[in-house]
């Protein structure tokens, strides 16, 4: 780990003043479940680390007529224990419980979940987001068993976010605050597939802090997340799907289907939504939606199996959502 200055501000304004205008100047520390390993591996070598866990206004979950507001430093465990999340956003709770390590759920934060870096083993070995060696990506001809089947490059990593797909499907937004003001960005736009090595995989700027997540009221919207994980013990999903369904009787009036761990961003499967909208939610429609979800998949040499796992995730997420009254 490279030596760094450590700051422990107690207000958001103090914290923002400590950030830099370029990556590498300052990193934000919350749960630390990813940040610390990034620093130990010298993948991040910030000059300053700004701990935001002591900032009260970044915590707490508030449920109101506007929806759910989740502070950035809320832990996974806090979210999973929240009554409103349980009753209205089971999709989020299911995504959290997919992190099958109590230690991770106790330390990891929802803001950190969105801002964590990819787990791609070429990125983690120092080959950058695009895994380049000698001007060529290592992924297509390397071991890509856990890589993207959507997007077609040049980035082949998969978004590691557990909450991302669920938040996109629920139409959530994040608040990004800098010393000069704040902006609200749809979670769907927050995740970005980088086109070159100098860009990042989120819309967050070096001088900004993700302060909260806002989820619109989900009254009557059925939602669910299904992750395909090989192990019961802590294990990254091989594919995941989050769905949100607005229903009229048994007919889907409007749907959102978002895939996880199959692309550099949470991947909205619009074709799957189209297959659902206006149709009764039955086995036939669900099968069509699952098929539509993978229609544009471009698997690599070792990850064709993820196409099938994606179908299954969509199907099971829809079945889970439809089972809820």
């Amino acid at each position: 780990m490279q030596p760094f200055e450590y700051a422990n501000p107690s207000t958001l304004q103090e914290a923002l003043a400590l950030l830099g205008s370029r990556w590498g100047e300052a990193d934000v520390l919350a749960g630390g479940t990813d940040q610390i390993s990034l620093m130990k591996e010298f993948l991040h070598t910030p000059k300053r680390v700004v701990n935001i866990k002591g900032i009260k206004e970044l915590g707490g979950i508030h449920h109101s007529s506007q929806g759910l507001r989740i502070g950035a430093t809320v832990t996974f465990d806090e979210l999973a224990s929240n009554q409103a999340a349980h009753s209205e956003y089971p999709s989020l709770v299911q995504a959290v419980m997919g992190i099958s390590s109590p230690q991770m759920r106790n330390m990891g934060t929802v803001g950190g979940d969105l801002c964590q870096r990819p787990r791609c083993w070429y990125f983690r070995r120092g080959f950058g987001l695009l895994a380049m060696q000698n001007g060529k990506s290592l992924v297509p001809s390397g071991d890509n068993r856990y890589h993207a089947i959507f997007g077609g490059g040049p980035a082949y990593f998969v978004s590691p976010s557990s909450l991302g797909p669920a938040l996109v499907s629920l139409g959530a937004k994040v608040k990004l605050v800098s010393a000069s003001g704040s902006r609200t960005v749809a979670v769907e736009k927050f995740f970005v597939a980088p086109q070159n090595e100098s860009s990042r995989e989120t819309a967050l700027l070096p001088n900004e802090i993700l302060t909260e997540i806002e989820i619109p009221l989900a009254r009557g919207i059925k939602n669910a997340t299904y992750e395909v994980r090989q192990k019961e013990a802590l294990d990254w999903p091989l594919a995941a799907a989050s769905v949100a369904l607005s229903m009229k009787g048994n007919v889907v009036s409007k749907s959102w289907v978002v895939l996880g761990h199959v692309a550099p961003t949470p991947w909205p499967a619009t074709a799957a939504s189209q297959a659902l909208d206006g149709n009764p939610l039955n086995d036939e429609t669900i099968a069509k939606a699952a098929e539509a979800a993978v229609a544009g998949a471009q698997p690599l040499s070792e990850n064709g199996y993820k196409v099938q796992l994606t179908r299954v995730a969509v199907k099971r997420a829809l079945l889970e959502a439809s089972a809820k009254a």
Binding site: W121, Y122, L138, G142
Partner: peptide, 29 residues
């Protein structure tokens, strides 16, 4: 079910020298 050392011919290195992708069973498995 889980364990294997994964090598990459392009970089000549082990890709999973960690407890994240060198997978081992947990109690539930």
């Amino acid at each position: 079910l889980y364990e294997e050392r994964i090598m990459d011919q392009q970089i000549g290195r082990v890709l999973n020298p960690d407890m994240e992708f060198y997978k081992l069973a947990g109690i539930g498995d």
